[in-house]
């Protein structure tokens, strides 16, 4: 049986993981990929509801699940078995083959320097909310330089989910890094 690619979207609370998933799915669907989404809801169904609304007409509601962390692995397997012809599952805060770590510019430009497993080990580091940089005196150049030191050449992508800035680049990085054998159907 074909292995469905699992992509984890992790990072601190409120950094924009759900927003990023909502931006990515239309681009992946546009590339004719069959997508599933598992959101990171801890106690509510807030995120899953939000994603369903945002992706109305793009992704069928039953391809989106919202489950607490403790049962996430089972939920992913369950969803995959219901949609076996899927190419990729986007999992907020879950176990995955490929990890996108999302940090928030507004949390301060020293975050990459402070390091941590998400910063150094993730397959792609996303620095989200670039629009907020002026409000918190964050220097994106410093963040890029520090991240480069910690990550030894692995990709760093700057995004703004409000305008879609950086999303095409992020999509390309995901296609080449994780979906190399399925991402070629154009």
């Amino acid at each position: 049986m074909k292995t469905i690619c699992r992509i984890g979207v992790g990072g601190p609370v409120g950094s924009g993981k759900t927003a990023l998933i909502e931006e990515l799915v239309p681009r992946l669907v546009q590339r004719h990929l069959k997508v599933l989404v598992v959101t990171g809801d801890a106690v509510s169904t807030e995120d899953a509801d939000h994603v369903r609304r945002a992706l109305k007409g793009i992704l069928a509601e039953d391809r989106i699940a919202g489950v607490p962390a403790a049962v996430r692995r089972d939920a992913v397997e369950d969803l995959e078995s219901r949609f076996p012809d899927t190419d990729v599952v986007l999992i907020e805060n879950g176990a995955a083959d490929f990890v996108v770590h999302v940090i928030d510019v507004a949390a301060g430009d020293r975050i990459p320097r402070k390091n941590g497993p998400g910063i150094s080990r993730s397959d792609i580091l996303v620095v989200n909310k670039t629009d907020l940089a002026p409000y918190v005196d964050a220097d994106l150049g410093v963040m890029a330089a520090d991240a480069a030191v910690q990550r030894g050449g692995k990709p760093v992508v700057f995004t703004n989910c409000r305008t879609g800035f950086g999303i095409p680049e992020l999509t390309e990085r995901i296609l080449e890094g994780a979906l190399f054998d399925v991402g070629v159907r154009v």
């Binding site: 292995t3 690619c5 083959d97 490929f98 080449e176 890094g177 994780a178 190399f180 054998d181």
Partner: peptide
């Protein structure tokens, strides 16, 4: 990982699936 893309010492681009 079950899925990975990385260069060998000799510079071969390996896509593991």
């Amino acid at each position: 990982k079950r899925r990975l893309r990385k260069l060998t010492d000799g510079g071969v681009d390996i896509a593991l699936s």
